[in-house]
Design a binder for these strands. Structure first.
Lengths: 255, 255
DNA sequence: GCCTAGGTCCCGTAT
DNA sequence: ATACGGGGCCTAGGC
């Protein structure tokens, strides 16, 4: 875990090269200027920043404020460090789309390189997918008698989240949102409808499943003939947990 | 610029509290577990990570790989550090939407706190806005005789990027994209058209200005009656530079 | 490779 | 405060 305090640029370059080679995490606090060129371009004059280089070839330049890095390059870059004219030049090139990030480092306060032991799995609960799973596991939460025919069903403009049939044989076309549903969802659903047909004598029932409807979209929804079924992430998670439990019980009763 | 190597949790907590108080940048390499709860929730078991806390109240937890942080909280959070049961607990609460991030730190390899001197301005070149400016500065790059009537013109579903008239008095409705234009742009433009009318005897000419058309959208575009005018970011930047130059010349000739 | 959709997206701007 | 669109968005999944 080498840590250098106010190293010379050449000491830093050596440690950086070693760190890159070993695919370590290198963290640096340094005064630098930054140029980006690729899909567009950017310029940032000299100033002190936090620079992070990761083993998978991504680089982040953070200022003293803001959530997002001011400049960066995602994973999969080729990163090189050169001495140049009394400065340390860090270059990160992304092959596709071809773009490059160049840091000219003038002075380094701190440089450390680390190997992070981290085997933990990251688990994210509750997303649109969980809502979809909840509906698929327990279709009658939409309404009694509702049956799933398909999900992620392909139509030319995209994918229908859930596609099913109600107790009267009408086709139900469901678009799921985990956030309050606004105009775009309504448009998207109406677009899908153009490519779907109900059997003779039956109807198409477009339906939005979401925690709520965005304020400004209430009236549009009413006019559009789209139904709304409330489902919060929390309720979806509860359903999934209930099923996880009953799955376990089903398993136990089998043994 | 205090830097602690393998500090005790209590030493680290003290330095962290001082750093937070002073709104410094605190960087930490530590073994920790992370819980997030808010719009959704997440869990990450123990492992070594890079933790960044900035003066504006944002926090980032980075693993040894990936561009994006595994957990985070954006600016404007209330961040606190407590000792708890032989661990150091870092909590970041975001008021709206209400959500919280909790790190339980077991062991610290490194902790540094920094004040970053950074007054530089960040300049990003060439975006959709640059393309719009290029068209506005030199309307006849669209076609000879084209005149601007308005831009960012409000229609119920959104804003028309550029709104103008051709040499024959037909209304040209332009939607600009910096990336290859696909289905969504076509839909958006057609949506806008519903709320626009040409003068009697004139036509509405919907037009997409973009570097290219997405492959799958070629036929849709053809059927839709929308025209396509190629403009790359690069060409837009050239036009802007030309005008910058001629502005300077105009200025010089004035003096 | 391109295209589509989702994200704890974040972020600014206008309402 | 909420809604809407843009982003060097990034990232994952299909084709």
């Amino acid at each position: 875990m080498p840590v250098l305090i106010s190293p010379s640029l050449d000491e830093a370059r050596k440690e950086l090269v070693v760190g890159l080679e070993a695919r370590k995490l290198v963290v640096m606090v340094a005064s630098c200027s930054v140029e980006y060129s690729g899909r567009t371009g950017s310029h940032l004059g000299e100033g002190e920043r936090l620079v992070i280089v990761k083993g998978d070839g991504c680089i982040l330049v953070h200022r003293g404020h803001d959530y997002q890095p001011v400049n960066w390059q995602p994973s999969g870059c080729i990163i090189q460090a050169h001495a140049n004219d009394g400065t340390l030049v860090l270059k990160a090139v992304r092959p596709s789309p071809l773009e490059s990030l160049t840091l000219v480092v003038k002075e380094i306060q701190f440089l450390g390189s680390f190997v992070l032991q981290d085997a933990a799995e990251f688990i994210l609960h509750a997303s649109e997918e969980e809502m979809q799973r909840a509906i698929i596991l327990q279709p009658d939460m939409i309404e009694p008698g509702f049956k799933i025919l398909d999900f992620e069903k392909k139509v030319p403009p995209g994918f229908v989240d859930v596609y099913g049939v109600d107790r009267d044989g009408n086709i139900v076309v469901i678009e799921i949102k985990k956030d309050p549903a606004g105009f775009p969802v309504i448009k998207q659903l109406l677009e899908y409808l153009k490519y779907l047909q109900a059997p003779p004598g039956r109807k198409l029932r477009p339906m939005i499943v979401a925690p709520s409807i965005a304020k400004g979209s209430q009236s549009t929804l009413a006019k559009s003939g789209i139904e709304f079924k409330q489902l919060t992430l929390q309720k979806a998670v509860e359903i999934l947990q209930k099923y996880a439990r009953s799955d376990q019980q089903a398993l136990k009763s089998w043994l």
